[in-house]
């Protein structure tokens, strides 16, 4: 509990500090992996980056300048990281453009895709879960069965099958692209977002159903019902509120998990986001772009996980902020 005593405040501060410190250390470690990968490559870093392309001495000098290959390894890393913190992701070898502006043009699509998927997971997943948690019967058993099966469907299979059925056969949705303007983009993103969200929807549905079933049989809920409180109030105040805690954590975690799924979905629907740029950059050996996108993805993933962690401890006072008694 966040009592107003200075001791509790100190606990909160220490807790927050610990989490944020952990976040920074993890971010630093993963950025080191992303940068150090360059040195794991066979051959010298500069031949790896140019990759047999015939380049003008000017261009090679530019790469040398970007990575500071004449300096010690750790200093190179510090310079690289410092550049990124100032928004300088280096230059693409293929597009001869700054990586930052390449990413800037494409990040919107990816963020929109993930946001729409998250919305679908929250609406449909929770909807199914709450319905089948509160109303056991044939319909809810069937929904749970379908959800269990859907959890075994990989994102790329979902994307392919949805394209076949709803875009090619029925023609309800466009097969690929993001269209023009925000409304058209939303329409183009529905199918990809659904493909990305499918497994998470199934998963959240199962989890929230189980959480609600567990709460509804709890003593305090039975007591509330026997004391004659209206069913709706009991459900809202006692069942849903308590069941929401485990569901919230998982909702957030699946959201973080969907980040790497964008690579696959953007490829299938030919969306010009970060995921498809990552795949094409790997294929075309444009390593500065690969590095930057990996870093952005991992950072987003780590930050999201930390935010969920913090949100959970705010919502559930039992996850003690510091060593206070529960």
């Amino acid at each position: 509990m966040s009592a107003a005593s200075p001791k509790a405040a100190l606990h909160t501060l220490r807790f927050l500090g610990g989490r944020i410190g952990g976040l920074l250390v993890t971010l630093l470690a993963s950025s080191f992996v992303v940068f150090g990968a360059l040195y794991l490559a066979p051959g010298s870093p500069i031949t790896f980056l140019t990759h047999g392309r015939s380049m003008t001495p000017d261009a090679i000098a530019q790469i040398n300048e970007q990575y500071h290959f004449d300096e010690p390894f750790l200093l190179q890393y510090v310079r690289w990281l410092g550049g990124i913190l100032q928004g300088d992701f280096g230059r693409s070898i293929l597009y001869k453009d700054s990586v930052g502006s390449l990413l800037g043009q494409r990040i919107g699509t990816t963020v929109a895709l993930i946001a729409l998927s998250a919305l679908l997971v929250a609406l449909i997943g929770l909807g199914i879960g709450i319905f089948s948690g509160l109303k056991p019967g044939i319909a809810s058993s069937a929904l749970m069965g379908v959800s269990t099966a859907a959890m075994a469907v990989p994102t790329f299979v979902a994307a392919v099958v949805l394209t076949l059925v709803f875009a090619v056969e029925l023609g309800w949705f466009p097969v690929f692209g993001v269209g023009e303007g925000p409304v058209d983009m939303l329409y183009h993103l529905i199918l990809p977002a659904f493909a990305l969200a499918l497994a998470s929807i199934a998963f959240v549905a199962r989890l929230s159903q189980a959480a609600i079933r567990q709460e509804i049989t709890a003593d305090h809920v039975q007591t509330a019902i026997s004391r004659g409180f209206p069913y709706g109030v009991v459900v809202r105040r006692h069942v849903l509120r308590n069941a929401s805690l485990p569901v919230l954590t998982v909702l957030g975690l699946t959201l973080a998990g969907m980040i790497s799924g964008t690579v696959v979905v953007e490829q299938v629907f030919q969306l010009n986001g970060l995921g498809s740029l990552l795949v094409s950059s790997v294929q075309q050996k444009d390593f500065p772009v690969v590095q930057a996108i990996c870093l952005v993805y991992v950072a987003a993933f780590i930050v999201l996980n930390t935010v969920i962690d913090l949100a959970y401890s705010v919502l559930d006072p039992r996850v003690s902020v510091g060593g206070g008694k529960s």
């Binding site: 993963s30 690579v263 990552l278 795949v279 990996c294 991992v298």
Partner: peptide
Amino acid sequence: AFPGLLLAILATS
């Protein structure tokens, strides 16, 4: 903290 698929993509690159 490093998503598996992403690490695999980095490795193939």
